[in-house]
């Protein structure tokens, strides 16, 4: 009985305490089971789009890149290098070159 009451009290507590800035008297938490969107958009098609789709979308969605500012070739090269060395993205040298070329073509700056 007590086990059934406690979760219910937690639910009611959530309803009653919805004002930001209010402190809690919470003594139990309620389990969560939620779906988090993943973002399934691909990069715009063009030379190198296969390379960037195949190598980059495993870790982050395309909007991560599309929302970046225009950057120089050196800056894009540095970004791709960081993904490979720091974050261990398994990108072949050929694909890395294709990805940098794609980024310079679509989001390049002098």
């Amino acid at each position: 009985m007590l086990r059934a009451v406690l979760p219910m009290a937690a639910v009611l507590g959530l309803v009653l305490l919805l004002h930001p800035g209010q402190a809690a008297t919470i003594t139990t938490l309620k389990s969560l089971k939620l779906d988090v969107p993943t973002g399934d958009a691909m990069f715009p098609a063009g030379p190198g789009s296969d390379a960037i789709n195949n190598n980059c979308l495993a870790c982050h969605s395309a909007d991560h890149v599309l929302n970046q500012p225009s950057l120089s070739r050196a800056a894009w090269q540095e970004v791709v290098n960081k993904m490979i060395t720091a974050y261990k993205a398994p990108v072949s040298p050929d694909d890395a070159k294709a990805i940098v070329d794609y980024l310079v073509r679509t989001k390049g700056a002098s």
């Binding site: 969107p37 991560h64 500012p69």
Partner: peptide
């Protein structure tokens, strides 16, 4: 309104327990 862009972002309400938010990245979420 950022010089050089891209300036537009989607307003999303698709994330669990979240209301209107500026979508900076879908996954991992920003």
């Amino acid at each position: 309104h950022v010089p050089g862009g891209p300036s537009k972002r989607i307003i999303t309400t698709s994330y669990p327990q979240k209301g209107r938010m500026i979508l900076q990245r879908s996954s991992p979420p920003w």
